[in-house]
Computed example of a mutant assay.
Amino acid sequence: MSKSWVIPVSIAVIAAMGVAMLGATITDLGPWYRSLDKPSWTPPGPVFPIAWTTIFALAAMAAVTTWRSAPSRAARDWVISLFALNAFLNVLWSLLFFRMQRPDWAFAEVLLLWLSILLLIVYCGRISRLAGLLLLPYLAWVSVAAALNWQVVELNGPFG
């Protein structure tokens, strides 16, 4: 039995954990966040780490599945590049929303994050249908997060 999966899986797990830890470090649920008016349909706090853990695990599986199924080195490089861009946008949203306390800027940025997930679904899905499907919960969750973000802007703006 081949062990060719060990290195890509290890790299994907380390990358996903790194993005998750960086995002968690930037996320500040302190007095500023608690003082914001939020819509009544905001999920309870414990839902967020469960959702993000699940999403990062599925995204890591999608990355490995796509990378291993990619028909060329160039295609594998695109997989890595698209996931790296997505990771950057994911962390940037937390930075804008929580650290800079700019939900208005974060909302504009979450649209880019959403598009990067859609791009991942399309690109990865062309290489591996399973990989594309594994990314659908990520798109759904960020859609909810974008709607929440917009409501925070509407209920609390202007910012700055």
Results as ranks from 00 to 15, higher is better:
Leu112Trp: 11
Val91Glu: 15
Ile7Asp: 12
Ser81His: 15
Ile26Lys: 15
Ile14Lys: 11
Val91Leu: 04
Trp78Pro: 04
Gly132Arg: 04
Trp52Asn: 05
Leu113Thr: 01
Pro137Glu: 02
Glu154Cys: 03
Asn86Lys: 12
Ala131Tyr: 03
Ile80Ser: 10
Leu135Asp: 04
Ser35Leu: 12
Thr42His: 14
Leu113Val: 02
Met21Gly: 14
Pro103Asn: 07
Tyr33Ile: 04
Leu92Gly: 10
Gly30Val: 06
Phe98Met: 01
Gly45Phe: 07
Val79Trp: 03
Ala108Val: 12
Ser128Tyr: 05
Ala108Gln: 15
Trp5Ser: 13
Ala12Lys: 05
Gly132Glu: 08
Asp104His: 00
Gly132Phe: 09
Phe48Lys: 05
Gln101Ile: 06
Leu112His: 08
Leu135Met: 13
Leu134Arg: 04
Val19Asp: 10
Ala87His: 04
Arg34Gly: 10
Ala146Val: 05
Ala108Thr: 12
Ile14Trp: 01
Asn149Pro: 06
Val79Thr: 10
Pro39Cys: 09
Ala57Met: 08
Leu58Cys: 00
Leu58Asp: 07
Pro44Glu: 10
Ala60Pro: 12
Phe88Ile: 05
Val9Asn: 06
Leu118Gln: 11
Ala62Tyr: 01
Gly125Arg: 08
Pro137Tyr: 00
Phe97Asp: 05
Pro8His: 00
Phe98Asp: 02
Ser72Leu: 13
Ser94Phe: 02
Leu119Ile: 15
Ala70Lys: 00
Val64His: 00
Asn90Arg: 11
Pro71Leu: 08
Ala147Pro: 00
Ala60Lys: 08
Leu133Lys: 12
Leu112Asp: 03
Val64Arg: 05
Ala57Gln: 07
Ile55Tyr: 09
Ser128Ile: 08
Pro46Ile: 04
Asn156Ala: 06
Met21Glu: 09
Ala12Pro: 10
Val144Thr: 04
Lys3Tyr: 15
Val6Trp: 09
Val144Ala: 01
Ser72Thr: 07
Ile14Asp: 13
Val142Leu: 04
Pro44Ala: 11
Gly45Ser: 14
Leu29Phe: 10
Gln151Cys: 02
Gln151Val: 09
Trp150Ile: 06
Met61Val: 10
Val19Ile: 11
Ala12Asn: 13
Phe88Lys: 06
Asn90Glu: 09
Pro158Arg: 11
Val142Cys: 01
Arg76Gly: 08
Gly132Asn: 08
Ala15Val: 10
Arg126Ala: 10
Arg126Cys: 13
Pro31Val: 13
Thr65Lys: 14
Thr54Met: 15
Ala16Leu: 01
Ala146Tyr: 12
Leu92Ile: 11
Ile55Arg: 00
Val142Glu: 15
Ser72Phe: 05
Met61Pro: 02
Gly30Ser: 11
Ser72Met: 09
Pro49Ile: 01
Leu113Gln: 00
Ser10Asn: 07
Trp41Pro: 01
Trp114Val: 06
Gln151Met: 09
Met17Arg: 12
Val91Ile: 13
Ser72Arg: 01
Ser94Gln: 05
Pro8Thr: 02
Arg73Thr: 15
Leu148Tyr: 05
Gly125Gln: 03
Pro39Trp: 08
Tyr33Asn: 04
Gln101Cys: 03
